[in-house]
Write a protein that binds this DNA or RNA. Sequence first.
RNA 1: GCCAAUGUAGCUCAGCCUGGUUAGAGCAACUGAUUUGUAAUCAGUAGGUCGUGGGUUCGGAUCCCGUCAUUGGCUCCA
Length: 622
Amino acid sequence: MRILQLHCDSIEYTPTKKEIKSAEDIDNPQTQKLEELVVAFVAIEDGDDSSVAQNAISQIKNSMEKIGCKKLLLYPYAHLSSNLAKPSVAISLLKEMEDGASELEVSHSPFGWTKSYKLNVKGHPLAESSKVITKDSSDSKDSGEITSDALKGESKIRSYWKIMSPDGTLSNIADFNFSKHKKLEILAKYESAKVRRVDQPPPHVALMKKMAIADYEPASDSGNMRFFPNGRLIKSLIERFVNDKVKEYGGYEVETPIMYDSEHPSMVSYFNRFPARQYNIDSDGKKLFLRFAACFGQFLMANQYQMSYKNLPYKLYELTRYSFRREQSGELVGLRRLRAFTMPDCHAFCKDLPQAIDEIKIRFELSQNVLHGLGIVESDYEMAIRFTEDFYNENKSSIEELVKKHGRPVLVEMWKEKFFYFVLKWEFNFIDNLGKASALSTDQIDTENGERYGIEFVDEDNKKQHPIILHNSPSGAIERIIYALLEKAATDSKEGRKPQFPLWLAPTQVRIIPLKDEFNDFSDELFEKISAKDVRVDIDDRNESIGKRIREAEKEWIRYILVIGEKEKNSQNLSIRDRQTGDVREIPFDDFLNEIKEQTKGKPFTGLNLPKYLSKRPQLMV
RNA sequence: GCCAAUGUAGCUCAGCCUGGUUAGAGCAACUGAUUUGUAAUCAGUAGGUCGUGGGUUCGGAUCCCGUCAUUGGCUCCA
């Protein structure tokens, strides 16, 4: 017996004429309409008997319980098999199945009739499944869901999941000892077996609001965030840090349009290759789309260069504000997954594969350094690397070298054949404390787009060639970095440590609290002295108790608090309440400044992005 | 996109199941008192078309349907 089972919003069918002599008699062949049901197209095959029918109906009932549906239509459908049972047998087994589901609202469409039908299948993953049930197979084969056309291409990718240790040995996931690599285990299961174990909102969503960083913007589309002054300050510092690092590496910063003509020849072939999820805009007959990465702009730009092999590798860089992807609504979460995001994207045009491989090693270290500088440490992320089997066989030692640089075992996905435009891709995945994995840094070796975009250079033999292109995002989306930092803070807090930002990202680094109004002038002087040294300092001049003002500074994660009273006014030293210890220290001004400078060394600075006086500051309640 | 849960004052939440005076509390805001020594000073005032549209009802925050958003799961993540 073969069954195609569909969870439907509705079905409408009309018996048109008897197809065989032994067709069922029906009173009036009217159009029937049923709603919110499971339709099971059934082909009863030669050799099927009562046990097959019982088995089939119990499997159908099972899966209907899973999807919570109570209405079933059995729809005789000969075209599922070329080895059909005799109609008399078929009709009796069909009725037996119907009887076997009496606790459901069950019916069958007339047997032996030609019918026209219209049906609306729901789109969820369990909506479609096919079953083959035979007499000998006590437990039948359930071939699982039938994938939609859009996914068929993806499911064709045949890949093998492995773990590669720093010494280059490959092991099967099932054989690998994860006891010292818990996060890698999470990533491996997450990616290869799609295991998820979360049942609560990610903590960063509450934090991004409470810390007045970012929030949803109901007047925009989902996944398009607003950033408050604190959030903008943090984001812009991270952006500047990444920009500086990429420039140090040798990327040249450019700016390209955020929208493109989807009918432009180079886009057409790209779109054919990927069923894209993009924002579309119709403008005066032009079909524009919002970029989902900086690739297009940079490739079209590179196309204009007259390049020689002597110029390569040549690196273009852009920090997109924004890249847009119309992710499915159910996939959006806080700052982890957005529809509009800021992405550093650095392409290196290389003359050949050896050069590309040399370059990818340099960018690998760049990415490690960038994450480290942002406060994402090694134990926060796990590496995955994916490549085609051919690439592995020809470049084994280079792959092993990357894994060695990482220094810990990595998750490997090996593709039997090339499906994407790249032959190798690695990424660092942040694992949050709910066990969710999201990619931060990544790099790819792209062997296709040089040709697609007509990018050329002249080689040693005066021949035109297309470069190999590397696509690196040293940090991943900036919003995602903020997500990672907030999730880390939430973990700290859960485990009894004080949550905090790296000092260079703190919206306020030092807070001055004058004990009474009479110390306001002295506090102002101190404010000037400190902010002249490029430190973000503010003054809580509100008429509140000292306890309350300290409590609120604590809640804003402010590292240093200076309470100013008679004692401080008359002393050369400062009394500093250090949030990390909760203790008050008395130290000279210069020592205090040095302590701050030491922690913010090599990081960009920008001034306070809020009113200097707390009394002038509106409360942001989100 | 599919399935489910949630949506009440600026914020956090109670009330909803079992429909019935004027929808409550804490925090924040505002006014006044208080001038404070390291995580919440006291008193008072104001603030809500109960996400939104429709339906049932004499009567809807409360029951039903649609819709939007958020969160979780599935899927996806070039």
